[in-house]
Amino acid sequence: MEAAVIYAREHGNLRVPFTYRVPAGQDAAAEGWPASLANFPLGQWTADARRFYARSDMDQDRAMQLEKLGMIWSHFDVAWEEGLTAAFFFFFFFFFFFFVDGPRRRATSLLRWTPRTRATGSGSG
């Protein structure tokens, strides 16, 4: 659990890749990892925690602790939500800029905005 707390503090959630291991040596000390956790397979540990949670083999206290750390119980659900959000913003962009704002006026300003944005590297144009 200590490794999960440190990982969540550094990354803001427990979206740990399956192959992730706690760093060892100089890198670990610089990032704040204790030597006792060196090479701990945190990715496998979180995958096991997801499996126990899905089978209802995890006690409620542990599940609540992991949820507070930002545990992702289902990557499929997260991918669905992210895809749905992207689709919503695509629809909003397409609908607003091409129907509400008028196709001719928007196309002209978009043609002016694109080269400026590319040249400056920002989206404020």
Rank of each mutant, 00 (worst) to 15 (best):
F88K: 10
R62F: 12
T46G: 00
F94L: 08
N39E: 10
P103L: 13
P34H: 08
P34E: 08
A47R: 15
F91W: 14
F95R: 02
T85L: 07
G70D: 06
G102S: 05
A49H: 03
V78C: 02
W45S: 08
M64P: 00
W45M: 03
G83F: 05
Q60K: 11
G32L: 06
F93Q: 05
F95P: 00
F76D: 10
W33F: 09
E31G: 01
F40K: 12
N39K: 08
F89N: 12
E82Q: 15
A29P: 01
M71F: 15
F95W: 12
V100G: 00
H75Q: 13
A87L: 12
E31H: 10
A38L: 07
G83S: 09
M64V: 04
A79H: 11
F91G: 02
S74E: 12
G102D: 04
V78P: 00
E67R: 03
F99R: 07
T46E: 07
R50L: 08
S74H: 05
A30D: 11
R105K: 15
A54P: 03
W33D: 08
D57M: 10
A54Q: 12
Q60R: 12
R62M: 14
F97G: 00
Y53N: 13
R104A: 14
Y53E: 10
A28G: 09
F95M: 04
S74W: 01
F99I: 02
G70P: 08
A38Q: 08
S74C: 07
S56D: 14
Q44V: 08
F91Q: 05
E82Y: 12
Q60T: 14
N39S: 10
P41A: 04
Q65G: 00
G32M: 09
P41T: 14
G70N: 09
R62N: 12
A29V: 11
V100D: 02
F98A: 04
H75Y: 13
W80M: 09
R51H: 07
F93G: 01
M71E: 11
G70M: 10
R50C: 07
R51E: 13
W45K: 08
E82N: 13
E81G: 00
F99C: 02
W80N: 09
T85W: 12
G102E: 03
L42Q: 11
L69Q: 04
R55E: 15
A28Q: 06
R62A: 14
A54T: 04
A86G: 02
F40E: 14
V100F: 03
Q44I: 05
L69Y: 02
I72E: 12
F96S: 04
L66W: 05
F95Y: 15
F91D: 10
